[in-house]
């Protein structure tokens, strides 16, 4: 009886994953409650959740979350859009590639956070510099992935399309675009991680709103439970992006 029960539980990988997460949280909870882990530095997960629920019900969380989502939305939109356009252009046209590739190759290795003070100088401390740094961070992985996707398009497809009378525009949009879409999406996936990182960083430098600000201001006041609640939100945001991209990828005609 017991053996079959164990087998039933461990036979399903999803159940094992859920149990593993549950065990980790329980250990943490017990550790905090018994005082093995200092509640000041590492409050119990139940405490973190309670603080989060409190922030939700009091309405304190929403302006921060809303502003963060707005920044990341515009940053992703601009970064992904530009990355895709420049990636397609440099991949399709050797001339455009020759013009832009060396410049972009020089800019690529710069840690994007290093550009933030410059952007603040140019665009002010408001929304524009935050959206700007996220855009730049997202731009590079999308651009690089799209370019290699475009360059890797099997030439037999292009020959086939041409032999069926396709115009250059048709080849771009009906062959190269769908053929490079999975590369593009993995660029977006990489970019979404970078976007989250830059969002939080930029909100820690001269901001009075957003999840990053919430985390930093909680740390200043030694409110570790609030701080961890902020981190939990970033984790949930990351999961949400990755889940959305999974859905998109599954809907791709390739799969």
């Amino acid at each position: 009886m017991e053996a079959t029960l164990l087998k039933g539980i461990f036979g399903s990988r999803k159940a094992v994953s859920a149990l593993s997460l549950l065990a980790f949280l329980s250990l943490w909870e017990v550790g905090s409650k018994t005082g093995i882990l200092s509640p000041v530095f590492l409050p119990a997960p139940s405490g973190v959740i309670l603080v989060l629920l409190d922030m939700i019900s009091s309405g304190e969380l929403w302006p921060h979350l809303f502003l963060s989502l707005k920044r990341i939305f515009w940053g992703m939109l601009i970064g992904v859009g530009l990355g895709w356009i420049v990636g397609m252009a440099t991949g399709l046209s050797p001339v455009i590639g020759a013009v832009l590739n060396p410049i972009l190759a020089c800019l690529y290795p710069i840690p994007k956070v290093a550009i933030l003070p410059l952007l603040i100088l140019y665009l002010g401390i408001g929304e524009a510099s935050k959206v700007g740094v996220i855009s730049i961070g997202v731009f590079f992985p999308v651009f690089i992935n799209t370019r290699s996707g475009v360059k890797g398009v099997d030439s037999i497809w292009i020959l086939a399309a041409r032999s069926l009378g396709a115009s250059t525009m048709s080849i771009w949009f009906k062959v190269v675009l769908p053929a490079s879409l999975s590369y593009f999406l993995s660029g977006v996936r990489l970019g979404s991680g970078i976007a989250l990182l830059l969002l939080v960083t930029s909100e820690m430098i001269g901001a009075n709103s957003g999840i990053g600000y919430l985390i930093l201001s909680s740390a200043d006041l030694m409110l570790t439970d609030r701080l961890l609640a902020g981190i939990l939100i970033t984790s949930l945001l990351g999961l949400l992006f990755s889940y959305t991209l999974d859905l998109l990828e599954k809907r791709l005609p390739f799969n």
């Binding site: 037999i156 497809w157 020959l159 086939a160 032999s163 069926l164 009378g165 062959v175 769908p178 053929a179 879409l181 791709l252 005609p253 390739f254």
Partner: peptide, 13 residues
């Protein structure tokens, strides 16, 4: 004229 290629040239998408 149109061509049937030796390798597989169908569009997988």
């Amino acid at each position: 004229c149109s061509i049937v290629f030796q390798e597989l040239a169908l569009f997988p998408w």
